[in-house]
Simulated scan of single mutants.
Amino acid sequence: MLLAIDRLLSATEAGALRASADTLDFSDGKASAGRYAREVKANDQAAPSPARDAVLAKVAKALQGNEIFTLAARPRAMTPLILSRYRQGQTYGLHVDDAVMQGLRTDISFTLFLSDPESYDGGELVIEDGFEARAVKLPAGSLMLYPSTTLHRVAPVTRGERLAVVGWVQSRVREAARREMLFDLERAVREVHGREGKSELFDLLAKSRSNLLRMWAD
């Protein structure tokens, strides 16, 4: 399931994180790439510091408090977040994320865009879904969720700077198709409840949703 979450952070919050990032030191992004992805990765990532950790803690809190993220990802655990930067000429070629990172199985990848899209050219997150390449460039503060199994890349930045936070989720529901089914059922349960309250149809849908989650959750 590909899912864009609008306004995980407000424009003001995203702007504050950009301002904080301006004070940070960055190092070569190849350090966090796998053996083969390292060959096509050319970006920067914020070096460890209390200031960087404060930025990432704000993002982690926003993720934990976002209901759509929680329902779509069903997170069991997450890898440490990375604050990445792409300057003019930098890019990340086609790759698939490592299956295991820091002892966690990677089921879902995500990119939280922090830069205003008008402030840079290029830098799209391009996801291959078997039929076409989908180029994603979201407003500052919005987030893209996508399966870690997909081939994807970041197009070269030709003007300005692209700042983003990236991370990976080990989900309680391992299979992407099952996560999507549960997410759709949750939406249906809420829609029915909003229209008619705790009806017979609501009870049946809620029962199916809960029992499927019980069956599939690790």
Rank of each mutant, 00 (worst) to 15 (best):
R209E: 00
L83I: 03
E200T: 00
A176C: 13
T150C: 03
Y92N: 15
L143H: 10
R209K: 09
I108M: 13
L56K: 08
E124H: 15
E191T: 10
L2T: 12
S20A: 11
E161G: 00
G197I: 04
T12Q: 11
A77E: 09
A206S: 09
L8N: 04
Q102V: 11
S109R: 12
P139M: 08
L3C: 01
R74Q: 12
A177P: 09
E161A: 02
G123P: 12
L9R: 05
Y146M: 03
M78W: 14
Q102A: 09
H152S: 11
F26C: 04
Y92V: 12
F113S: 06
R159S: 14
W216L: 05
L151D: 07
M181K: 02
R172E: 15
A135H: 07
E175H: 15
R174D: 00
P48N: 07
A99E: 12
L112F: 01
G167Y: 14
S20Y: 08
D107K: 00
K30T: 13
E180G: 14
P50A: 03
V136W: 01
L185R: 00
P117T: 07
S199H: 08
E67Q: 14
Q90S: 00
R179E: 00
D218E: 14
A54M: 02
L151E: 06
I5G: 07
R178G: 13
G103L: 14
I127F: 14
A73G: 14
A140G: 05
A140Y: 05
L2I: 13
E118R: 09
I127D: 02
L17D: 03
V165D: 01
W216Q: 10
R18A: 07
M1T: 13
L81V: 05
T158C: 11
R35Q: 12
E67C: 13
E128H: 13
W216G: 04
S84Y: 03
T111Y: 04
M215L: 08
R172H: 11
A57Y: 08
D121F: 04
D107M: 06
W168D: 00
D107S: 09
A54N: 02
R187Q: 10
L145W: 09
E118I: 02
S208K: 13
T158R: 15
Y146R: 05
L56D: 03
A47R: 11
G89F: 04
E161Q: 06
E128Y: 11
R178V: 15
R105W: 01
L24I: 06
L24M: 08
L205D: 07
Q45G: 02
M181D: 07
R52I: 04
L71Y: 15
F110E: 13
R38L: 02
G65C: 05
A31G: 05
V189R: 01
P50G: 03
E161I: 05
V165G: 01
E161P: 06
V136H: 04
R179V: 08
L9M: 01
L81D: 06
Y146S: 01
D107E: 15
I108G: 15
P147H: 07
G160Q: 07
W168A: 10
Q88R: 07
I82Y: 06
V173F: 09
V59I: 04
G123L: 12
L143Y: 05
L8M: 03
R18H: 10
A72P: 12
P50V: 03
R76G: 05
L145E: 09
Q64G: 13
L205T: 03
T79E: 15
K137V: 07
G65Q: 06
T111Q: 03
D25K: 01
R105F: 03
R162T: 06
P139H: 10
R76I: 00
R214F: 15
